[in-house]
Design a protein around this nucleic acid. Structure first.
Length: 480
DNA sequence: CTAGGGTTAG
């Protein structure tokens, strides 16, 4: 630009910073802002607003707030857009308290909050699962002379949806006409995601008379509602209906349908959908494969789960710890403890970090395979791997000891649980009592049973049966 | 010539 004898001015910088924002280059945006003083170009509110937006897009909420705070120092007065962008940055990181704080700071800064401000704060509350606050804010708008529009309502409906408050979500939807706000496809999509499958399908059927056209997100949300309700056939029916209404399924739609099959224990349609995705020009992603692998897990199709896992690299789909967790679980269900341990070591080779769920699945695989020593070994390796064991880890290990009739080891684990701040539950006690039974320790079995009330664990049928078996075994052996 | 808010899958 200097060669062209054109001197950049404020607008030039503003346009450049805005371009950085659109290209998701927050570092470059801030660099440009920092270069302005030496170029003797004075930033205005638009400059800062564009920079705040760039930080927001980059997930840099702290920097967005810093910039807002810096504006007065350079004698630039923040306006509603500055606050709105900063509030929106808090939303992205789930900082609903900060969003509310910014809103409360606006009057003393003499900036009047508008509908966009409220929508952004409501959205921040929605992400923070603060539905009561979201509804309060909506009700405060008239006295603040801010007029709620469809986006405000959509954010509030979404806040209700996120916490399963479908009645409140539907109530808001019904209030929109009298507030003279016209619902759009996002309104319906949000409401559908709040509802169980019956109501979700009702809402879907009501869309034409509301003159709202369903899109792929509408179908994805409806399929998801069917999936959660165990209605895998309906989920598949909705998917097959989409070409007729000229809505094109995307990756998320297919993922929701595969997930519906998974929940219904239907590995065949799940793998069928996976195989049909290329011809429908839908690109599978990690979630697609995770759902397909999990679908195989449900019906002991561990070989198929492993073949899905092996297909991922050639489809250029990245694998995560969750992918391996699903595959290890499939091996566990299929009684393949060697393969489960093998997958755990592969995870480490490909530098994926195993978590509590990974170890739990592997310990369970050892348990089912009768490998109590390996189960204990895995549990003992967790702290070294910086993975925190939970109740499930210990219960799986105690069960492994039970299957191997290792009553001392089982009791040891049970006694360690309170030390590591874990509360033994019914499963822990039942497994330990069974271990005593298998080890011929009827006194210890009864002792454990007597300890349960003070541990606030309620014995059930399994507990009593195990204790009774322990005593019967002792009685029958003493007859000879 | 430049700046702000809402929806779906594991």
């Amino acid at each position: 630009m200097p060669e062209a004898r054109v001197v950049p001015n404020t607008i030039t910088y503003n346009a450049a910073i805005s371009a950085c924002e659109k290209a998701s280059q927050w570092q470059l945006a801030l660099q440009l802002l920092s270069l302005m003083p030496e170029a003797r170009v004075v930033p205005n509110e638009i400059t800062y607003n564009a920079a705040i937006s760039a930080c927001k897009k980059g997930g840099q909420w702290q920097l967005a707030l810093t910039l807002l705070g810096l504006m007065p120092e350079t004698r630039v007065v923040p306006n509603a857009i500055s606050y709105n962008a900063a509030i929106s940055a808090c939303k992205n990181e789930g900082r609903w308290q900060l969003a509310l704080h910014l809103l409360s700071m606006m009057p003393e800064a003499r900036v009047v909050p508008n509908a966009i401000t409220y929508s952004a704060v409501i959205s921040a509350c929605s992400n923070g699962k603060q539905w009561q606050l979201a509804l309060n804010l909506l009700s405060q708008m008239p006295e603040a002379r801010a007029v709620a529009d469809e986006i405000t309502y959509n954010a509030a409906i979404s806040a209700c949806s996120n916490v399963g408050q479908w009645q409140l979500a539907l109530n808001l939807l019904s209030l929109m006409p009298e507030a003279r706000v016209v619902s759009d496809e996002i309104t319906y999509n949000s409401a559908i995601s709040a509802c169980q499958w019956q109501l979700a399908l009702t809402l879907l059927s009501l869309m034409p008379e509301a003159k709202v056209v369903p899109d792929e997100i509408t179908y994805s949300a409806s399929i998801c509602a069917c999936s959660t309700g165990g209605q895998w056939q309906l989920a598949l029916a909705l998917l097959s209906l989409m070409p007729e209404v000229k809505v094109v399924p995307n990756t998320i739609t297919c993922n929701a349908a595969i997930s519906a099959c998974e929940k219904g224990g239907q590995w065949k349609p799940a793998l069928n959908l996976l195989s049909m995705m290329p011809e429908a020009r839908v690109v599978p992603d990690e979630i697609t494969y995770n759902a397909a692998i999990s679908a195989c897990e449900k019906r002991v199709q561990w070989q198929l789960a492993l073949s899905c896992l092996s297909l991922m690299p050639e489809s250029r789909v990245g694998q995560s710890a969750m992918t391996y967790n699903a595959a290890i679980s499939a091996c566990e269900k299929g009684g393949q403890w060697q393969m489960a341990l093998n997958l755990l070591s592969v995870m480490l080779e490909v530098r994926l970090v195993p978590g509590t769920i990974t170890y739990n699945a592997a310990i369970s695989a050892c348990e089912k395979g009768g490998q109590w020593q390996l189960a204990l070994n895995l549990l003992s390796r967790m702290p070294l791997a910086r993975v925190v064991p939970n109740e499930i880890s210990y219960n799986a290990a105690i069960s492994a000891c039970e299957k191997g009739a290792q009553w001392q080891a089982a009791l040891n684990l049970l006694s360690v649980m309170p030390v590591v701040r874990l509360d033994p539950d019914q499963i822990s006690y039942n497994a330990a009592i069974s271990a005593c039974e298998k080890g011929g320790q009827w006194q210890m079995a009864l002792n454990l049973l007597s300890l349960m009330p003070e541990a606030r664990v309620v014995p059930d049928e399994i507990t009593y049966n195990a204790a009774i078996s322990a005593c019967e075994r002792a009685a029958s052996s003493s007859w000879y």
